[in-house]
Design a protein around this nucleic acid. Sequence first.
DNA 1: GCGTATATGTCAGTAACTGACATAACGAAG
DNA 2: CTTCGTTATGTCAGTTACTGACATATACGC
Lengths: 194, 194
Amino acid sequence: MPRNGEDARRRLQQAALDLFLERGYEATTTAEIAARAGVTERTFFRHFPDKREALFHGEEAFRAALADAVLAAPADLGPMDALRLAFCSVEPVLVANRSFSEPRHALIARTPALQERVLTKTAGLVDGLAQALRRRGLAQPAAALAAQVGMAAFSHAIQAWADDPTSSLESHLGRAFDELRGLSGTRNATASAD
Amino acid sequence: MPRNGEDARRRLQQAALDLFLERGYEATTTAEIAARAGVTERTFFRHFPDKREALFHGEEAFRAALADAVLAAPADLGPMDALRLAFCSVEPVLVANRSFSEPRHALIARTPALQERVLTKTAGLVDGLAQALRRRGLAQPAAALAAQVGMAAFSHAIQAWADDPTSSLESHLGRAFDELRGLSGTRNATASAD
DNA sequence: GCGTATATGTCAGTAACTGACATAACGAAG
DNA sequence: CTTCGTTATGTCAGTTACTGACATATACGC
């Protein structure tokens, strides 16, 4: 058995996803995942802090990429525009991982325990965005609020993108942030729809 | 031993909070909680689906109260104003439970497992708000977005309220929703602060 | 007092996770 | 090529959250 380390982690990650998709998350044991990956259960927990985490790995890198993109945005842009640009910049990454993240998303949608972890991961992304916004000179409370609102728009755009993949993520993001602007000014809910 | 049911749940809830505050969440076992409440461990799991849930109980009622308040808001108000009114309406509830929810909040702040559950509960509140907004005639995607943004402002106001309890929650909510409006228009992050 | 529903106790079992220690592979230095 | 230190893994024992099945006791209507 080769003892590469990084390789074992990838095998475990793949085995976990495969088994979860076959039998469901709850019906799969960590011992089964380890067995399919050719390692022991103990080794699984050396690579991942818990069972759920086997599905969430690229997240730290994604968080860093988003934060970097916020910092790279032109300095004269407001916080929301900087966020929108940052979200646009990760479109190629999302497209590249589509074949991996699409079945994963379907699995999460039917697994409450995984949905809960997604919320934690999303909160981590929001924290990273808020930190980046503060480095752009925004005050802390405003940065946290802007990051949360921006993430809401991003999730909204991602959902719209899944429903209509023919349009680009950028266009969906534009609509989401427009809708955001419209929310504050709306006086009557039905007036704008008619 | 009286077998009241509802009484046992209250005792378990109190025992859980007390023990978590004394020894920390992770260092407390469900058996210890049950023992202090005068019941068996099995009974604990008959009243709560898991260990964490012993701390989150008034949440369904709170969710319903928020949703009802959204529906009770004047029909000519826009979604954000309806949400702001709804948040204002629960201020007395929050004040009444302060002595209970303050130590609980401190406990959650130092317990990752509980923070994760808070996120799930918050997502439930957002769902309830979105549903209420839809009954007010708002389209589904806009309702979900508005609910998320409103909840962000609410959390923001709650935080500001904790930092400065002399002002009312209503005033903090006003500032938070104002800041929300300001986010979209801001062109330069530092310009408004100077 | 009697019967029934509901709350609880008891018991056995599964599975997620952890610590401690031993062992095997890998890389660099000699 | 051997040696040695580092790192990844295996082994084992143990704790604890959680569940199902069945028995028992308490409350409540009659």
